[in-house]
Amino acid sequence: MSSISEFHLLSVLAQEMNMRKASERLFVSQPALSQRLQTIEKEWGTKLFIRSQKGLALTPAGEHVIQFVNEVLGKEEKVRETIHSLQSGVSGTLKIAVASIVGQNWLPPVLKKYSDTYPQAKISLITGWSSEILKSLYDDQVHIGIIRGMPDWKGVKIKLFSDPLFLVDRDITRPEQLLETDRPFIQFKSDSNYYQEIQDWWMRQFKTSPKRTIVVDQIETCKQLTFNGLGYSILPGITLNNSEKEIYKVPLLDENGESLQRDTWLLAYESSFKLKQVQAFVDLIKEHSSQSSE
């Protein structure tokens, strides 16, 4: 049976599908890597990879072996994390998946403080849309997920903060003026529940859709187009600060006349809190949130 180091070799080969790139990641020569692969294939009694000019391709048997290899490596990592959690101090890898907007605007100082406080701990960070964060949690790829909007989650849920939504423009100071302008509404791609919040607000206000719309991939692009007067946008407060000059920020109000808020939540399974690096991160976040609200 192959050893853990050989499982790691197979996993890297399956990720790269290229002998040269895999040998560089593994810090071995290509001939040495080729020889080790032949030995492993003899142990399994079958070819796992097929070579071609374009690189490597998995055989049907290879697909089954790589699936098994990745499962074993995943379990090995969990055992190592458990061992780390039993030792004194905070170490091991903290795996976080965070909504991109939070990762860009709120998370950096939190991670900096965590790294300074617990230098022995490592951080693995994934960013994406909230729907992708939930999938990472369901697939057990991360310890903690931080998402935007109301989560459908049966595990531990901790509300971190709420930030208001603003109508942002260089000229418009009241929502009613949106019906008078021919300039476009600039939107950034996001999760469907965010779109739904904006659409609900718009229909309550105007009973009609915007005259013109521009959709961009990134929220930063949306901001810069708005700040330069190409149109107006609706942005969450987390992306704005007091440094914006000559920009009007009009709070969006709900049907009760209260500020429309976007919530940010921390999600995790109860078992994750048994890991010291996870509990330490959650404690630090709570401290950070309480200080920010003062």
Rank of each mutant, 00 (worst) to 15 (best):
T221R: 11
D116C: 02
F49Q: 06
E16R: 04
Q177G: 01
Q291P: 02
S34M: 09
F273E: 07
K249E: 00
G257K: 06
L225W: 08
V156I: 15
L86R: 06
T59Q: 08
R170Q: 12
S243L: 04
E255K: 13
E270C: 06
H288P: 01
T181N: 07
D169G: 06
K122C: 10
K245P: 00
G103Y: 06
F185Y: 14
D200S: 07
T239A: 10
Y269R: 14
S192E: 15
I214Q: 13
S162W: 04
V90N: 13
H8T: 13
N241L: 00
I285W: 03
T127I: 02
R204W: 12
G257A: 02
G128N: 10
S192R: 13
K47I: 01
V72F: 02
E63C: 07
L134T: 05
I50K: 14
S130I: 09
I83N: 06
L111D: 09
I285M: 11
S292W: 02
G237T: 00
L13F: 02
K223M: 14
M19I: 12
R170C: 08
K54T: 10
T46S: 14
L284N: 05
E294S: 11
V65C: 04
V65M: 01
I101E: 02
F68S: 02
I83T: 03
F227N: 03
T226E: 04
E287L: 08
D163S: 11
Q261S: 09
M150E: 15
R212S: 15
D116W: 09
Y194A: 03
A121K: 09
K78L: 15
Q15E: 11
W201Y: 13
S192A: 15
I219N: 06
S52W: 08
Q261E: 11
Q177P: 09
Q67F: 01
